[in-house]
C-alpha cells in the first residue's frame, strides 16, 4: 500500500513522457526542446505517405478542377478579388479530406501539394488549422450578391 503511495508521488513530480496535444501546442522549432527531452520525436512515416495538404494561393488560377474530382467534396470554391480582378480560389476542409491525392495530381499549376504531416487534431472542426487556405479567404473573399439567396 505504502509502495503505491510512493509511486504515485514519484509519478506526479516526474518528467512527463508524453507530448502536448493537439499538436499546435508544440513549438515550431523543436530542436532545442528535443535535447532537453521535453518533446518526443514523431514517428517516421513511410515514403509515399499522404498527409496534410498545402495550398499555394499565389499560383492558383481558380480553375476549379480540384473541386470537381475531389471524392469527398472537401474542396470549396469561393469568389475572390485580387488586384481588383474577380476570380476564384479554393479552401480545403481537412476534416472531410480522404487524402487520395487526386487534387494534387490534377492541378495544372501545382498549387496543391501533399506533405507527410499527419498530426491534425484540433478542438475546432472548422478552425483555421483544419481549413487550408482560410486565412486568404478572410482577406480576399467577396460576397457575390447573386450567390447569397
Amino acid at each position: 500500500m505504502l509502495g503505491m503511495v510512493y509511486k504515485v508521488i514519484e509519478q506526479i513530480f516526474s518528467k512527463k513522457s508524453t507530448n502536448c496535444f493537439p499538436m499546435k501546442y508544440i513549438p515550431n522549432n523543436t530542436t532545442q526542446y528535443l535535447n532537453q527531452g521535453i518533446i518526443h520525436p514523431p514517428i517516421v512515416v513511410k515514403e509515399g505517405f499522404r498527409g496534410r495538404l498545402e495550398y499555394d494561393f499565389q499560383s492558383c488560377t481558380g480553375c476549379g478542377l480540384c473541386s470537381k474530382v475531389c471524392p469527398a467534396n472537401a474542396i470549396e470554391l469561393y469568389s475572390a478579388e485580387i488586384n481588383s480582378k474577380k476570380t476564384k480560389r479554393v479552401v480545403i476542409y481537412l476534416t472531410r479530406c480522404t487524402f487520395c491525392k487526386e487534387c494534387v495530381d490534377i492541378c495544372p499549376r501545382n498549387s496543391i501539394t501533399i506533405t507527410k504531416s499527419f498530426c491534425m487534431a484540433d478542438y475546432k472542426k472548422y478552425g483555421n488549422s483544419l481549413v487550408v487556405g482560410s486565412e486568404y479567404r478572410q482577406q480576399f473573399e467577396i460576397k457575390d450578391h447573386a450567390d447569397v439567396e
Binding site: K46, E47, G48, F49
Partner: peptide, 15 residues
Amino acid sequence: LDCLEEFTGNRINYG
C-alpha cells in the same frame, strides 16, 4: 501491411 503502406501510402484504402 507495412509493405502495402510503403507501396501505396496507406495500410488500407490504397487509392
